[in-house]
């Protein structure tokens, strides 16, 4: 464990909590892509199956349980509790365009052709595109509430810190996880465009981020 990974995990946790609190306190999920949240719940479910088979550390186990619980709570709030505030017509990204290539690739490119490895690889590839429906919704509606942009900012920061973590681990312990790194870089690239908008729009005190 290094400071980059710890900071990354904390940013990830902060992002998930920001979104959950926003939905809970505003009692609305307007502007939130339910599809992205479903994809994140699938990412955690398929990645943390080793929760019951491999014990790595108390931190690892607790964070996995927390991420699973919070992501399912978010999906529950969107599709059950506040479903009447969910504008599904704006959340129109075709998930099959993401799931089919990701499933195919996880069968082609993996470390071992075993169910656990393929599911882990699937979760890595899926995480890199899971934010697409949310970014698509923002480009479609042309705006995002500032809380949603803070959520995306912390999510992007978590990915950027994970890249720093991989650089650090490569130089200090020669650790290199090719699938995770390639997929993580692709995922972070999606956020770069958003980071630019975030800094030029939201941080300039406009409150709402409106796309040009």
């Amino acid at each position: 464990m290094n400071i980059f990974r710890l900071a990354g995990d904390v940013c990830h946790l902060v992002a998930i909590i920001i979104l959950l609190l926003k939905i809970w306190r505003s009692r609305s999920c307007a502007g939130i892509s339910g599809k992205s949240q479903v994809l994140f719940a699938i990412v955690f479910t398929t990645r943390y199956l080793d929760l019951f088979t491999v014990f790595i550390s108390p931190y690892n186990t607790i964070m996995k349980v927390v991420f699973l619980a919070l992501s399912y709570a978010t999906v529950y709030l969107i599709y059950m509790r506040f479903r009447n505030t969910f504008n599904s017509e704006n959340d129109s990204f075709r998930l099959e365009f993401l799931l089919v290539p990701v499933i195919g690739l996880s069968f082609l490119e993996n470390y071992a052709f075993t169910p656990l490895e393929i599911l882990w690889t699937f979760s890595i590839f899926l995480e890199s595109v899971a934010i697409m429906p949310q970014l698509f919704m923002i480009t479609k509606t042309g705006e995002a509430e500032s809380i949603t942009t803070h959520y995306l900012f912390f999510l992007g920061l978590y990915r950027a810190l994970y890249i720093a973590n991989w650089v650090w681990r490569y130089h200090t312990e020669g650790f290199f996880d090719q699938i995770a790194v390639v997929s993580g870089v692709v995922q972070t690239i999606f956020y770069i465009d958003f980071f630019y908008l975030y800094v030029t729009k939201v941080l300039r005190g406009r409150g709402k981020m409106t796309l040009p």
Binding site: M1, R5, D9, H12, D50, V54, I56, S57, N60, M63, K64, F67, Y111, A112, L116, W120, Y162, N165, F175, D177, A180
Partner: peptide
């Protein structure tokens, strides 16, 4: 390739 126990990242 990576062994399962090395997968300690979230």
């Amino acid at each position: 390739g990576l062994k399962a126990e090395e997968k300690d990242e979230l």
